[in-house]
Design a protein around this nucleic acid. Sequence first.
DNA 1: GCTCAAATCAGGGTTTTCCCGATTGTGCCG
DNA 2: CGGCACAATCGGGAAAACCCTGATTTGAGC
Lengths: 216, 216
Amino acid sequence: MTYRIVLADDHKIIRDGLKALLEKEREMEIVAEAENGRQALQLVRKHNPDIVIMDISMPDLNGIDATRQITSEQPSVKVIALSMHSQRQFVDGMLRAGVSAYLLKDTAFEELVKAVRIVLSGKKYLSPDVTDIVFQDYRQPPVFDAAEQTAELTQREREVLQLIAEGRATKEIASRLHISVKTVETHRKHIMEKLDLHTVAELTKYAIREGITSLE
Amino acid sequence: MTYRIVLADDHKIIRDGLKALLEKEREMEIVAEAENGRQALQLVRKHNPDIVIMDISMPDLNGIDATRQITSEQPSVKVIALSMHSQRQFVDGMLRAGVSAYLLKDTAFEELVKAVRIVLSGKKYLSPDVTDIVFQDYRQPPVFDAAEQTAELTQREREVLQLIAEGRATKEIASRLHISVKTVETHRKHIMEKLDLHTVAELTKYAIREGITSLE
DNA sequence: GCTCAAATCAGGGTTTTCCCGATTGTGCCG
DNA sequence: CGGCACAATCGGGAAAACCCTGATTTGAGC
């Protein structure tokens, strides 16, 4: 009895590597490889595999949207997310899309094998590194579905974040918003706590990703 | 006679995969694995390998700057760039840094093997997909603006900039580079003067645009 | 040998950030 | 209604970062 696996990642050399590793395991068989989400969808329909190993960032159709369609069409197919990103938005998106496991590319191959077996036994698996994020997520207000991911921050906090990410000094932000420097500091502190980011550099990157500021 | 290889990529599972593939080739031996550029540098000094397979986007010290130091310290060590990006800035940066080959992760593993052999015979190798970019690059005016702007910064300054843009505290940068806080401050000051930028947020955006750090 | 740039560091004053608070208003819920 | 959470505001004091003015060393280039 072998497990039939579809592999979806837009980089061929990475697929080659994973394939070489997986095929060392006797009971695992790669039945198809996809280089984007749309192709993954087609191949899953065609081969009806036990497992899909799915990258997130892929052209044409991304891993999250591909997963959503797969799990709704064929709930028996288990999807394992294999991603470079530990950001909440990705983890969150993938969990909502119905993955059975979420692994980071940082992890060792042995973890992937472990995840495959656990998932096939009907259970879920999370990379230790992403577990934190999930807990963090569910301890806080249930983050209304499609509502807003940035909604975690208050209006005022987003204003302050934008100004920070635009390179304004704290003092300048204060005078611009007609509040004291102390208040701006408090807002910044709250933002950092909520996002679990601790420097202006990280805040800036977050703001860019969220479209709160541009790369100018 | 075996070729001794150092593998540098920040994702363990990808290293695992490449290692599995490379070790199928009898004459190739992975002597060390690095998860960032700085570690790669150390391991190259220690093991003096024939080949380094180098990812570009890595934390702490990126692949371009790591390559620059390796090729200047030990010209006999051949570096093969293995990157997700076909953007000109990366190809360009790596070629200037002295790589012997540039491959995309899109390519098949066989190409990597081919590249290794070609490089060891003293020649250069480019992924077909990136060849275009190189031609494009040299057909156009020697790119005064873009190329020169990054060239304004010294090697050390770029290292410091990367760490700043990754959100490291000054103190942390100092200890990581084994220099004093004062020196880091001086570097930062020089960077800001040269680029006419005055906040960490602006430095971060600059570093992202220049590919010195990623949006992670 | 001279020069210049890169890399390193120090002293000392100024500014900002960080870590502990606290207060006020508002909306919500039992 | 009375609590309760939370947004928005602000302070004091310690720690860290920032700024300015130097200085030394090393190596490349002329």
